[in-house]
Design a protein around this nucleic acid. Structure first.
Lengths: 147, 147
DNA sequence: ATTTTTAACTTGCATTATGCAAGTGAATAC
DNA sequence: GTATTCACTTGCATAATGCAAGTTAAAAAT
């Protein structure tokens, strides 16, 4: 059961980069956030279907951790009591820039990337515009639910 | 001993975000790159002194991995044969944007951040300018050595 | 020239994180 | 009611990380 308050885990440091890495610097957290923010996945089973094949226990832990950090919020689906919907908080939405930067870097240096040609160049030509556009698209795709 | 060629490790996917995470998405790689790119640390002992306390074997592995991925280069110090100097390749330098984005996010959401006030706001007001300036500063600070 | 110190690692072992397959309980569908 | 779906949990194997001590080569001190 998730705690109500953020637990005061001692951080390795308060360097802002380190803070980010302690929150999302593992093998899976940013894959989950990518799927929520960019791929329109909001349910456990959809996130589970990521082509990188996350295990159920790991996805479960990651979602709990992200919720503890107030990066996502877990909401029961009013139309189906078995299901939950995971949406990004403002804090989670703010990861968009970092995720797109990492993606631009990956697209530039992976010779076999799935990204369409020109992705990196376009992103770097207008970083803030691309980020804003992606955020707007996310906000439109996100299910609107009352908590 | 480092391999001459990048080993064809099978990737989980060719999503550009996933490529980045497979290369540097662990607890330490971006801390090391932060220290090289932003903190003027180029030697094993300097990187070891990161306040996050990386272990010697882990630092050693990370440096080897980063070199395999052609993100850094290991150069013997011509003035002291015991020492090596680790510098970012162009691929490594290209991580600057992602590191600064993560830092801006961390500075925004860590109430106890070490970052000076206004860091995030300034960065977001001129992302490309801030990144270019940081890269220029890096290139000036980096030791100039012939391979 | 020999000894001591420094730098960059290795090695061995404990702990933690991740991966995999199977199982559970609550809610919906039939 | 029974069966199925959904979101997990459990148990156990393997991999990654953390910690302390040891090794090797080069440089500095004597």
């Amino acid at each position: 059961m998730p705690e109500t308050h953020e637990s005061p885990v001692p951080l390795r440091s308060h360097c802002p980069v380190n803070y980010a890495l302690e929150a999302v610097g593992d093998r899976w957290s940013l894959i989950v956030m990518r799927d929520i923010l960019l791929n329109g996945k909001f349910r456990f089973r959809d996130l589970l279907a990521a082509e990188e094949r996350i295990a159920t226990n790991v996805l479960s832990e990651r979602l709990a951790r992200l919720a503890e950090h107030r990066i996502i919020e877990k909401i029961r689906d009013p139309d189906d009591g078995r299901q939950f919907i995971y949406v990004a908080t403002e804090k989670g939405e703010s990861l968009m820039g970092a995720i797109l930067e990492l993606g631009a870097w990956g697209a530039e240096f992976d010779a076999d990337t799935d990204a369409p040609p020109g992705t990196t160049k376009k992103f770097r030509a207008d970083r803030s515009g691309t980020i804003s556009a992606a955020l707007e698209a996310y906000r439109k795709s996100r299910p609107r639910l009352t908590r």
